[in-house]
């Protein structure tokens, strides 16, 4: 495809569902997710890759949706926080965040849960260093991180603290 027209027609899979959209070339993936698809669980903090609030999974891997053009997601699989639960059941990581009190204002939470999901998919039993590394692209202004780390550890050990 060497389309040079202004708006671009793209197709991508978001939370398991195929979507078609026509987007401006300069629209970010974050704008597509929030403004076109109405999935507002994904947050915009800094818009520059620093805070991780906009993190989504692209083909299972965490990326900053503020630093991707929507057109770059053409043909890819995207999971947002709205796609984390399974058949109305919370993901064990979501439940563990609740159980450990790892959510205060909640602005960082969607991104963190997705990074944690990607981690546990790769390493079901991560050690503390793995966990810290996996969440190092996220800023949380409220919790001081300890509860978040505990929550991820809890989810990894099947919900036990």
């Amino acid at each position: 495809m060497t389309a040079e027209s202004k708006n671009q027609a793209i197709q991508l899979v978001v939370n398991g569902k195929t979507h078609r959209a026509v987007v401006a070339p300069q629209a970010t993936l974050l704008e597509l997710i929030r403004d076109h698809l109405g999935l507002t669980g994904t947050k915009e903090g800094c818009g520059k890759g620093q805070c991780g609030a906009c993190t989504v999974l692209l083909d299972g891997k965490p990326v900053n949706s503020c630093l991707m053009l929507a057109v770059q997601a053409q043909g890819h699989q995207v999971v947002t926080i709205e796609g984390a639960e399974h058949e109305k059941e919370l993901d064990p990581i979501q439940q563990a965040f609740i159980d450990e009190g790892a959510v205060q204002c909640g602005f960082c939470t969607p991104g963190l849960i997705l990074s944690a999901r990607a981690l546990l998919d790769q390493h079901p039993h991560p050690d503390e260093d793995h966990i810290k590394e996996a969440i190092s692209g996220h800023l949380c202004r409220c919790t001081g991180y300890s509860a978040i780390i505990r929550a991820i550890r809890r989810a990894a050990s099947g919900g036990k603290s």
Binding site: G49, T55, P62, V63, L67, M68
Partner: peptide, 9 residues
């Protein structure tokens, strides 16, 4: 480099 998200892209 950066963070896991940055290294991914």
């Amino acid at each position: 480099v950066g963070s896991p998200q940055i290294r991914q892209r």
